[in-house]
Simulated scan of single mutants.
Amino acid sequence: MSMQTGTELSGQQNGMDYWLLGATLVLAGLGLIMVLSASGVMAERAMESKYFYFRKQAMYALVGLVVMLFFAKMPKKLMYAPVYLWLFAIIGLLCLTLIPPFSVKAGGARRWLSLGGVSIQPMELAKVALVFYLAYFFSQKQKLVRSFSVGFIPPVVVTGGLGLILLLQPDFGGAVFLGMLFFLMSLVGGTRMTYLFVSVLFGAGAIGLLIVQSPYRFKRWFAFLDPFKDPQNVGYQLVQSFYAFGSGGITGAGFGSGKQKLFYLPEAHTDFVMAVLGEEMGFIGVSMVFLCIAILLWRAFRIALSQDDLRDRFTAYGMALVLGLGFLLNLAVVLGCVPPKGVAMPFLSYGGSSLVACFLCVGVLLNLSRRQTP
């Protein structure tokens, strides 16, 4: 019988999950390359330097790496202690987006705060704050989680409150994202299926009402069913995305040689960066991204399943959901599977708030991976 150390007997591991770390760094590095390619022409015309967005994204990536390492090494008690502080701070930031002097209006919505010349999108951090809260709630209320007043109403009020502020910005996609987080975490948290079924019906009705009341939103919501019916208006972005993917072939046109980013495809370096990648790197490049995503999510959910502590398990599961839903929804939009909505591609799309929030999620997962059972 072989000798076992105290660490092995207790089921603890001192090392981080380097598969998760490696997949994250590859995606982030590829994201920097694609931001440079997708934004170069636009940046050169608007900012007089084709490296403008690339330099900003590199700075965001550096900040994200520091945040990831900070959370990866942070004592677990310190990470969990300010759960309500996280929540109230995010609510405060979201409310500030509704006040013109503090917020930046773009595309008809106030989703960004301007702080010292830096734009912050609080919604990206709201996803993380909601995960911390729901993980705390479901781990502490397991004996009461199947009751309506104690186990169901509080998380509904918190999630609904955050969603309502987002709808006032308006950020329809962000509110739906938080609703999906709530549903999937409640599903494993022990909430009665009856309550979840009723909440889904209520949510679907609210979504339908919001769509019907806005003619433009109604057209845009159903544009993905047949984008070529109105290719110069509501279907334009999706049609250009199809052209980009279709022209990529097996090996792609080559880095920097894509045509759709030349003012044909709107938001080429943000929400639709995968279309540019598909055109320039082809099926091989897209497959490499899918492989990295698969490795990242495999390790993330494995970390969640390996936790002994219930709060650790819910927290890891929630962080994996933030990343997984981001990947899924962005790919579904650029491939025309769901209505177009502003969902950034984790680690690949341009944007500091999204990138730092994704690194934060990975940092929490790396932290918990040091405490997983073999």
Rank of each mutant, 00 (worst) to 15 (best):
T251Y: 13
R55I: 13
D226A: 08
W19C: 06
T5R: 08
D308E: 14
L348A: 10
V234E: 14
F70Y: 11
V212I: 11
G254R: 04
F359V: 04
K341L: 00
D226W: 01
N233A: 15
L187Y: 15
F137P: 12
F148D: 02
Y243H: 07
V63L: 14
G336W: 03
V276Q: 13
A294W: 13
E279D: 05
L32V: 04
E124I: 11
R111Q: 10
A320R: 00
D226Q: 05
C292F: 15
I293C: 11
T7D: 10
P215C: 04
S147N: 14
G254C: 10
T373Y: 10
T5E: 06
L93Y: 00
D171S: 08
K141C: 03
F327H: 10
N367K: 05
M123N: 11
V128K: 00
M345N: 11
T315H: 08
F301Y: 15
M281G: 05
R146L: 00
A89P: 03
S247L: 09
C292V: 07
Y264W: 12
R313H: 12
L238S: 06
L167T: 03
V273K: 05
L323A: 05
P100K: 08
Y60T: 06
G29Q: 12
G108L: 06
Q57P: 07
V200M: 11
G161R: 11
F290N: 01
P75C: 06
L130Y: 02
I120N: 02
T24Q: 04
I99S: 02
Y133E: 08
L201A: 11
F132G: 03
Y80G: 00
G64Q: 09
Y195M: 07
G249A: 07
F222N: 14
V273D: 09
Q260S: 10
G107T: 07
K219N: 10
M180A: 15
D308P: 03
G342W: 02
H269E: 08
P231M: 04
G256W: 09
A206F: 12
A38L: 09
